[in-house]
């Protein structure tokens, strides 16, 4: 499991697949998800295979999630905000 080296301080709460996740102010969704042990963020639109954050800098588009009903958002580029409802990007929701 991942650990935080500098204690607690997670003041933001959002949900991922219904599970409550704690994040620090100013932290990206992807970082908070990884800290919480959630490494799978989407299903490939081609095969449905699971994918997760890879580059953490907005380049790879593997960390796409659905935020408050809006799909295809980059979890590594979006700062966590209280009350966000985040879900995995499901393949059948975007692919034909």
């Amino acid at each position: 499991m991942p650990q935080r080296i500098d204690g607690s301080g997670e003041t933001i709460r959002f949900t991922f697949e219904g599970r409550e996740i704690a994040a620090r102010a100013g932290e990206t969704l992807a970082a908070a998800l990884i800290a919480a042990g959630e490494t799978t963020t989407r299903a490939s639109v081609v095969s449905g295979a699971p994918r997760g954050p890879y580059c953490m800098m907005g380049v790879c588009f593997e960390c796409l999630v659905e935020i408050d009903g809006v799909p295809n958002r980059q979890a590594c580029m979006i700062v966590a905000e209280p009350g966000m409802s985040v879900n995995r990007q499901k393949a059948d929701e975007v692919a034909a």
């Binding site: 929701e93 975007v94 692919a95």
Partner: peptide, 21 residues
Amino acid sequence: TERTKPRLSMPTHVVRQTGEG
């Protein structure tokens, strides 16, 4: 655009949905 669910059942003269979505 990025892929999306099947939304358009037929092509139109300026907007169509591809086989990939």
